[in-house]
Design a protein around this nucleic acid. Structure first.
Lengths: 106, 106
DNA sequence: AATATACGTAACCAATCAGATACTAATATG
DNA sequence: CATATTAGTATCTGATTGGTTACGTATATT
């Protein structure tokens, strides 16, 4: 995977727990960087960097309002990840069924 | 996230495209390491390392048969990731609906 | 105009990652 | 029993990550 592709890879973006927490936070509504940073034990620049990764993966957008920058959740790219996982749904369903049947037989 | 937790983090495991490809490959059925490695441009030890990460995330299991080791897909942990994504489904659905309505109005 | 605030970026650092090659242990085969 | 095959591990390397502090720039406030 080349650098450009890697940067916008949604799987890479959601691999980090802090970034997932930021996305979760944004489900409650858009927020400026300081508000977001306040929710975490990390420095503001650290959050800024996470936001850049999310931005590059197109999972958030930025709106400048005065001197603040509001970040908004843009969950569409998550569909790619969900789509990939979808291919496994039947599989784990099957495994669970198998387990259930096994338990009922004993 | 501490080291132990990180090791078994399914999000981390599926962040790497090679590891996702290995999982995809295993959907066709269990396979010994050499067979898996043959599908990739990387060295066998590299694949071995990926398999270890997948094993630690409990996404695959290993069965020793003679001098081979068969790896089997164990997709249950993917449910954790799917569950997290599920929380966003309504969200992107909503966004798509909004787009559709917008297009129909023009 | 001077100061305070919001936020991105640069520079740096330690830890982790993903790959390679070299080696070892276990098992199968001639 | 000697040799070949399978696969994990050790070690090394360069790149990437996730964090920090210091700084610059744009906007708001006094």
């Amino acid at each position: 995977m080349n650098r450009a592709r890697a940067a916008e890879d949604v799987f890479r973006a959601i691999a980090d727990p802090t970034r997932r927490a930021i996305l979760d936070r944004l489900r409650a509504g858009s927020a400026p960087v300081n508000d977001l940073a306040a929710d975490f034990a990390q420095s503001r620049p650290a959050i800024s960097k996470h936001l850049r990764v999310l931005r590059e993966a197109r999972l958030v957008t930025e709106q400048k309002v005065g001197r603040e920058r509001f970040y908004t959740l843009e969950p569409a790219p998550l569909q790619r990840a969900a789509g990939w996982l979808e291919g496994y749904r039947g599989f784990w369903q099957h495994n669970l069924d198998r387990l259930k049947r096994h338990l009922e037989e004993t």
